[in-house]
Design a protein around this nucleic acid. Structure first.
Lengths: 240, 240
DNA sequence: ACTATTTACTTGTAAATACAAGTGAAATAA
DNA sequence: TTATTTCACTTGTATTTACAAGTAAATAGT
């Protein structure tokens, strides 16, 4: 048997990625049984502890539930992994009805802080890529977000098209940047003049505000994001 | 060597519980190095895969971070495990400055639904324990929460004292009910007359509202909770 | 026909073993 | 003294082996 050539990506991670893509891609639907651990072993040419490590992660992230004696059942793509616990607004809603309007195209800016989160000297010196977007669910503006990303080692980033695409998917696919976790602040505010225009709401309308500092697999590389939500029709939903 | 007598609680879970309590209890402080995996093996009389499984869970839950070649470093009790991702307000703030006023003492009520979450026939028939509390941070009212718990197999529950205690700690210690996860809705509203009184705020003040359905280790046993937060001075903070 | 048991699956737990790879300090060579 | 190498220690990955325990269908007994 061959050790692990190619890329040095761990086997359990490969198996995880494959199964994950099969779940999100619809190969396995909600309620379906995954192949048994032993079957997955033979298919992917690994042993059971390796398969189990992949399944452990899928379980932790809410993609599957396992039952002793029965098997692993697909729970579906964890909807709430969206805005409240992991990635971005795209996965929070489900890509179907979400459209995006770019208000400020990605541009290089200088910065001194990011939504109350302090920056390192290195981050300040690098400058940032600044983006403002308005996200519409079924044509109704629901999210208005500002994203700031340190301008380091992201070739051709500002020239990419972000319409109707998940920022995190782009970072994942093209730059191998993966979201690891992060911290966030939540608060309720009233809409200011700008918000009133974007969301088409009246005076004193309540708005949900999130300030987020998002960790990635690149050491010291954080993404900063501020999201304003009109929760009139669409509340934020999450699992934990 | 003895197999696994006593309780049939897995070894990796025991090790996890011990290390977790040592971190939350202050035996290991933030930045401290945990004993190496091999040391933990000898101390707890288990093998490395078992220790690693315990450390995996601590890593996932944010108690520690691990660095290849260096060791496992204590990150501290995950603050945000509080209101946004796991337990209750107590752990979200840190028990120090939080005081609690009971507005409606635990009482048995009938119910038909719980904050938009549908109830099973069994849950409706059981009735619920209903509690309303106002939580003050440094003397300032910040949280107002309503909790509803199915009235099944919780002896002497209504006669317990909940002042300045974490509801989840009581459930954990006295009834072996552990929070596993859950789902929640977040939205921004304006304070109604009741809220204005509780929080001592004026007309049109924005309030953060959470509706939560919390899963436990008891199959089919869910805790329902509605929390209103005045985020004027104290924003909600969480990690993920 | 019905019940109890067996049997063949499934996931869960645990150990023993081996090597890869990152870290940092001590030993060594320049 | 300084720079380099070595070495001991850490966590990361992976296999092999074994048994426990839950599930459900097939089977045998009544």
């Amino acid at each position: 048997m061959l050790k692990h050539q190619e890329t040095s990506i761990p086997q359990h991670r490969k198996v995880y990625e494959i199964l994950r893509s099969h779940i999100t891609g619809g190969v396995f639907g909600e309620g379906d049984f995954l192949p048994s651990e032993n079957e997955l072993c033979t298919v992917h040419h690994v042993t059971r502890p390796t398969v189990r490590k992949a399944l452990d992660r899928l379980t932790n992230e809410g993609y599957i539930v396992r039952h002793q004696g029965k098997g692993s059942i697909v729970k579906g793509s964890p909807k709430g992994v969206g805005i409240l616990s992991m990635t971005g607004t795209t996965s929070a809603i489900g890509q179907d009805n979400l459209t995006t309007t770019i208000i400020i195209k990605p541009e290089i800016r200088t910065w001194n802080n990011a939504f109350n989160f302090p920056l390192t000297k290195s981050e300040i010196e690098s400058g940032c890529v600044y983006i403002e977007r308005l996200r519409l669910v079924n044509g109704k503006p629901v999210f208005y977000d500002i994203t700031m990303i340190p301008n380091v080692n992201l070739p051709r980033f500002t020239s990419r098209n972000f319409e109707n695409k998940s920022l995190f998917d782009i970072l994942r696919k093209h730059y191998h940047v993966e979201v690891r976790g992060g911290e966030q602040q939540l608060l309720a505010i009233v809409a200011d003049e700008k918000m009133k225009g974007y969301f088409n709401v009246g005076q004193g309308h309540p708005i949900l505000q999130l300030n987020r500092k998002i960790e990635t697999n690149r050491a010291g590389f954080y993404i900063y994001s501020q999201v304003f939500c009109n929760t009139d029709e669409y509340v934020l939903y999450g699992t934990f």
